[in-house]
């Protein structure tokens, strides 16, 4: 839905938008298609916003999805807290027969996952 912009709404949306971005500096888009959950993470995933990822992963766990496709192409980096959330989810998800695949990742995230040897747990694709 589109909103016509006037001076007031520009100011309102700008301040509101800035606040949202400043609070999270990261966005997660989660969609479901049959038994596939597709999650796209943009920005920087760190200890300050990892709880948002945890909430989204809980949503996947509670769904009927048996495959989680992670798109990390626009994810500039992930701290150990974020990785911890993914691994705890992985442990529970595979125990109920689920699978994870990183379908795309940025260079920095790919390097990080390789360094931590997470590519031995699930498929991690670059680019």
């Amino acid at each position: 839905m589109q909103n016509k912009l006037d001076k007031q709404s520009i100011k309102y949306n700008y301040v509101k938008g800035k606040k949202i971005i400043e609070e999270i500096d990261m966005t997660i888009d989660l969609t479901f298609d049959g038994n596939i959950a597709a999650m796209k993470i943009d920005g920087i995933l760190n200890s300050e916003n990892a709880h948002i990822l945890q909430e989204k992963l809980t949503e996947v766990m509670q769904s009927n999805a048996s495959m989680l496709e992670l798109d990390l192409l626009d994810c500039r980096n992930i701290s150990s807290t974020g990785i911890g959330k993914i691994l705890l989810f992985y442990k529970d998800f595979i125990s109920k027969g689920g699978e994870i695949e990183v379908v795309r990742s940025s260079n920095s995230v790919y390097d990080l996952f390789s360094m931590l040897k997470l590519n031995q747990l699930f498929t991690v694709n670059l680019g």
Binding site: M1, Q2, N3, K4, L5, N13, Y14, G17, I20, I21, T27
Partner: peptide, 9 residues
Amino acid sequence: GYLEHDYFI
């Protein structure tokens, strides 16, 4: 002139 809220973000 027009912008969706998501585009703003």
